[in-house]
Design a protein around this nucleic acid. Structure first.
Length: 448
DNA sequence: TCTGGGGTCCTAGGACCC
DNA sequence: TCTGGGGTCCTAGGACCC
């Protein structure tokens, strides 16, 4: 029987900031989303701040994240700014370069503690603990936790179970455990049931707000209720996925390990603008720039795409402004990974949906119909049947990627991306140094 | 003044075919 | 003078995740 462990960095982004400014450890710390828009990470002290007066209407019903009463998360920054200030909170703009580098280090350490690892997100990985002596699982996890703390200064929690869902749940519960580790595999059935009875069904991985409401309507209120529900009924009333989740809670693994990350089936690059965009020239630059980012991601996974979508919209929360949103998809005759070609297509798609007179807040580019380059299916009936990649373009793109990787993003770019990005680029007014990836931003220590 | 970005999977429904 | 039933493929939208 496979044993799964889930390692998860506590308030990961906030912990990354604290790791380099240990003086913050006793202060509330929050990290903002792109554009300094809302809060995406908060340490426990910040989470404990009194949110009474800001609980209402956090992101509106159309938001990605419903506000949960206990959470500072996803509150618009401007709404909580006065409260944060009152409590002397350290506020940071997102510093993705720093978090990505710290993430790699954390995952590398975790990998040393298991035969297999699945990197699930920037701050989480599943580990395979199968075959380890049962009584030592807990101490093994503690050793892992200790090493990550010592080597990179990030606190983690570890959950252990017979399925991914159990490991996720154990991890969630471990966060409030004294030592930050919880092993469900060593728990007798009765103890497990007693524990499950105390946890709300919405805490289960894969049960979001909507499903949780629907389950509660059917008298399935706790993890125990879900675990003991009839699995065929669950499939009929909800979905095959809910059925699987229930089985997983029973210790029957339905979701496999994925050691190698799958190639993306869709690649999106989109951003909110630092300030609303009114003119086509500026919008062209933004769309060109997002296309370049998406195309670089595409080449990184050695794929091509055969369709591209551009979307633009006005700010939905600024209700006094005229609202408009639209998207347009263009198929390509040949699969490609060329920034030059994709940019042409993207700008053509933009022409289709652009209307003068609106204040635009966001734009994005999505690449779809993605295929890996190695199993490209050339279209025999296309006018140019021998096409299966274009060596000249491939070399050019390779050179572009190499230079940008070595010298920094946007060292080399198309003229259509523009040089005055400050007209639309996001605000990050509170960014810390990139301690681990830039020589000139290294931490300095003074002796004497 | 100020509300993120990037993914996956599933399902329902329409178009089309026999 | 009758308006079935089954199948596939595609797309849009919903729900979930971090």
């Amino acid at each position: 029987m496979t044993i799964y462990a889930l390692v998860d960095g506590n308030s990961f982004y906030a912990s990354c900031q604290i790791a380099f400014q240990p003086g913050l450890v006793n202060r509330p710390v929050v990290v903002l989303s792109n554009n300094d828009g809302c809060i995406v990470a908060a340490n426990q002290i910040a989470k404990n701040l009194d949110l009474q007066h800001i609980k209402t209407n956090s992101m509106g019903s159309g938001g990605y994240h419903a506000a949960t009463p206990d959470s500072m998360m996803f509150q618009p920054f401007f709404k909580v700014a006065p409260l944060l200030k009152r409590y002397n909170t350290a506020v940071f703009s997102s510093n993705y370069e720093l978090y990505a580098d710290m993430s790699q280090r954390m995952h590398a350490i975790s990998a040393q503690f298991a035969t297999r690892q699945e990197i699930y997100s920037i701050d989480e990985s599943f580990l395979d603990f199968t075959g380890m002596p049962k009584e030592s699982l807990h101490s093994h996890a503690l050793a892992l936790k200790k090493r990550i703390a010592q080597w990179i200064g990030i606190p983690v929690a570890v959950g252990i179970g017979h399925s991914k869902t159990q490991a996720k749940l154990a991890n969630h519960l471990a966060k409030t455990n004294a030592d930050g580790v919880l092993d469900l595999t060593q728990m007798p059935e009765s103890a497990l049931d007693a524990l499950y009875k105390k946890v709300k069904v919405g805490k289960v991985w894969g049960i979001g707000k909507r499903l949780s409401e629907q389950l509660i309507n059917q008298e399935i209120k706790t993890v125990y209720d879900l675990k003991s529900a009839n699995s065929k009924t669950l499939r009929k009333r909800f979905s095959v996925n809910v059925e699987r989740i229930a089985l997983e809670l029973n210790g029957q693994a339905c979701f496999d390990f994925h050691e190698k990350p799958d190639n993306k089936q869709n690649i999106v690059s989109s951003r909110s603008f630092g300030q609303n965009v009114l003119d086509f020239t500026t919008m062209r630059e933004a769309v060109s720039s997002y296309t370049a980012t998406a195309a670089a991601k595409l080449r990184k996974q050695q794929s091509t795409c055969q369709a591209l979508t551009v979307f633009i919209n006005t700010p939905r929360y600024q209700t006094h402004l005229a609202q408009y949103q639209n998207q347009y998809t263009l198929p390509l005759i040949y699969p490609t990974d060329s920034t030059i070609l994709l940019t042409k297509i993207a700008l053509r798609a933009l022409q289709h949906i652009w209307y003068e007179g609106y204040e635009y807040q966001k734009a994005g580019v999505m690449l779809t119909n993605i295929q890996t380059k190695t199993n490209l299916q050339p279209d025999l009936f296309a006018p140019n049947p021998q096409y299966s990649g274009n060596p000249k373009s491939d070399n050019l793109m390779k050179a572009l990627d190499n230079i940008n990787q070595k010298m920094g993003k946007n060292t080399l770019q198309l003229a259509s991306s523009g040089l005055q990005k400050n007209r639309w680029q996001m605000n990050r007014n509170l960014m810390s140094k990139r301690y681990t990836t830039r020589w000139e931003e290294l931490l300095k220590a003074y002796a004497g």
